[in-house]
């Protein structure tokens, strides 16, 4: 029932950067790391992006430390801001390099967001790396002025940690993260050896195999659920997962108690703790 109505791969295919279920099943070269890290939001320096870009032979997507680069977060100073009716472009200088950024202005909330952004301001950016004609720009989802300047050091420490994690700690764990084992401890297929890649999306939405809690958790770990800092409203979860609000709220309560998810700005928005 559920599986036939909801194709996770298609619904969250984020601009073509996420492979569909069929691709994953058909392509044995698709490693477990790619499969898993597809959900990641990477804190990066411009230097890391530049280096990976040079090694990628101008392919549409590339990897850093063995992880597919999709959504990224950067901290730096805004320069050369140019505002137009439909979009705002600027250069982000994070001290390691400079990268062109572009933010589409579609709604009032977008224009309010970019109006306060001026040259010389430190900002935190969430965005998507996009390559076009050999040029790589950052397509910005969210841009926020930094008010506590400890966030700058914190960001670069994050970059170091994630780099260390992806290059060393992840390998020590044989390619299967503790996150996955933790998150999927109820589903036996996930406990396979590293040689059997955890096909996260295939079979994920089969009815009866997973309870609502697991579905909620999986949903909140999708990259699209993490695009917004606020997390996801429970109405949206209920609609996407097609479960009643009563059942959903009791599952959410359990997950909160287990520390796997948390409420954000109010009692109705939730995020997965794994994704921060």
């Amino acid at each position: 029932m559920y599986g036939s109505q909801f194709d996770g791969g298609a619904a969250f295919s984020g601009g073509g950067f996420m492979p569909s279920q069929t691709t994953q099943a058909a392509d044995p070269s698709f490693s477990s790391s790619k499969n898993r890290e597809i959900q990641s939001l990477l804190p990066l320096t411009v230097k890391q992006i530049k280096e990976a870009f040079l090694l990628s032979d101008d392919k549409s997507n590339f990897t850093i430390d063995g992880v597919d680069v999709n959504n990224v977060t950067l901290v730096g100073m805004v320069c050369n801001r140019t505002g137009r009716i439909t979009d705002v472009t600027f250069i982000l200088d994070d001290g390691t390099g400079r990268i062109e950024c572009n933010k589409w202005v579609q709604e009032l909330v977008d224009s309010n967001e970019v109006e306060g952004i001026l040259d010389g301001m430190y900002v935190r950016i969430h965005g998507h790396l996009k390559g076009f004609m050999g040029k790589r720009t950052l397509n910005v989802f969210s841009i926020r002025p930094i008010t506590d300047f400890n966030e700058i050091a914190s960001h670069f420490i994050d970059c170091i940690y994630v780099h260390l994690y992806n290059t060393r700690l992840r390998k020590l764990q044989g390619g299967v993260t503790t996150q996955q084992q933790m998150a999927n401890s109820t589903s036996t297929p996930m406990k396979g050896s590293p040689a059997a890649p955890p096909h996260q999306f295939s079979g994920q939405y089969n009815v009866g195999q997973k309870n609502i809690e697991q579905m909620v958790l999986d949903f909140l770990q999708l990259p699209s659920s993490n695009a917004d800092e606020k997390g996801v409203h429970c109405d949206v979860i209920a609609r996407q997962l097609r479960v009643s609000m009563d059942k959903l709220m009791s599952s959410i309560q359990n997950l909160v108690e287990e520390g796997l998810i948390y409420s954000t700005t109010d009692d109705f928005h939730f995020k997965s703790t794994i994704n921060g």
Binding site: T45, G95, N150, A153, F156, I157, C159
Partner: peptide, 17 residues
């Protein structure tokens, strides 16, 4: 914290910066 970052960014993790 900032001072520690200065050291990491010029030491073991210089290649990220």
């Amino acid at each position: 914290t900032y001072n520690q970052l200065c050291q990491l960014a010029n030491g073991e993790f210089k290649h990220l910066f």
